[in-house]
């Protein structure tokens, strides 16, 4: 599997490493994907890197690669963001993978081996949901709102109504809320806020977890929040050019 830029892998690692320390990557002809729960079982993260994400991709037999994020991160730090990355996994020797970074400009090449782990992964079945509300907005804006409000209080409430979408945080000595209304005047789709809902709803989530979920803003200019009463929120970032996505499910706080 050869990626044109290592930056994609770096960003994916940054987006999951606070939640997941080790995870199985499932490789098949469609691409590479992973699903993992955080240790508290509060967040489920799913990553899909489709074949379209790669400059070249070949997977003759489906394989599962058990990756420890810490050494993987150390290896990836050795790659320049613009360098190509080739990941090689051998079906005959499933003890490790090889990573080759190529800098075409400088004619430099570096090669690493990463030992694979035998991870007893727990795969969760996520039912197809009919969401009560969906909000799409610029990922940078969502990130700023979450980062700012997480400083105010540890509970982040998201309310959807005719007024728009309201993000509220309450701390011991301050409270703040931010309201976004659908924007239709903005030309660029990536800068638009779109809100759809069947019934008004209001749900509360742990702000520190939501903060971790905003790291994936680096992977996509837009984010979609899907909510339904008393269900986990789905926060989805679609990568450009059908390259794949990263999705987080965060369990709500309840009475």
């Amino acid at each position: 599997a050869r990626l044109p830029r290592s930056a994609v892998l770096k960003k994916i690692l940054d987006s999951v490493k606070d939640l997941v320390k080790e995870t199985n990557w499932d490789c098949n002809e469609e691409g590479m994907s992973m699903q993992a729960l955080d240790t508290g079982r509060i967040v489920l993260v799913e990553v899909m890197l489709r074949e379209a994400a790669f400059e070249s991709y070949a997977c003759e037999v489906p394989m599962t690669l058990g990756i420890d994020m810490e050494p993987f991160g150390k290896v990836l730090r050795c790659a320049g963001g613009d360098e190509k990355v080739t990941i090689k996994a051998s079906r005959n020797d499933q003890d490790h993978i090889e990573l080759v970074f190529e800098n075409e400009e400088k004619e430099r090449m570096s090669a690493f081996e990463l030992k694979l782990m035998d991870i007893d992964g727990e795969h969760m079945a996520v039912p197809d949901a009919e969401w009560g509300a969906e909000i799409s907005m610029p990922s940078s804006e969502f990130k700023k709102i979450v980062m700012d409000l997480a400083e105010i209080g540890s509970d982040l409430t998201i309310a959807v109504s005719k007024l728009g979408v309201t993000f509220t945080a309450q701390g011991n000595n301050c409270k703040g809320s931010m309201v976004l209304q659908p924007s239709t005047a903005v030309d660029k789709k990536s800068e638009q806020v779109a809100i759809s809902f069947t019934e008004p709803l209001e749900m509360t989530f742990a702000a520190p977890y939501m903060k971790m979920i905003t790291k994936a803003a680096a992977l996509s200019s837009t984010v979609t929040l899907s909510l339904d009463e008393a269900c986990p929120i789905c926060v989805r970032y679609e990568m450009e050019d059908n390259a794949g996505h990263i999705k987080y499910y965060l369990a709500p706080k309840e009475d």
Binding site: L37, R41, I42, H123, M124, A206, P232, A251, E254
Partner: peptide, 14 residues
């Protein structure tokens, strides 16, 4: 106050 739920009450193992 509010209690943090986990995902197990929503998602099951296949």
């Amino acid at each position: 106050g509010l209690r943090q739920g986990t995902l197990h009450s929503f998602f099951s193992k296949p």
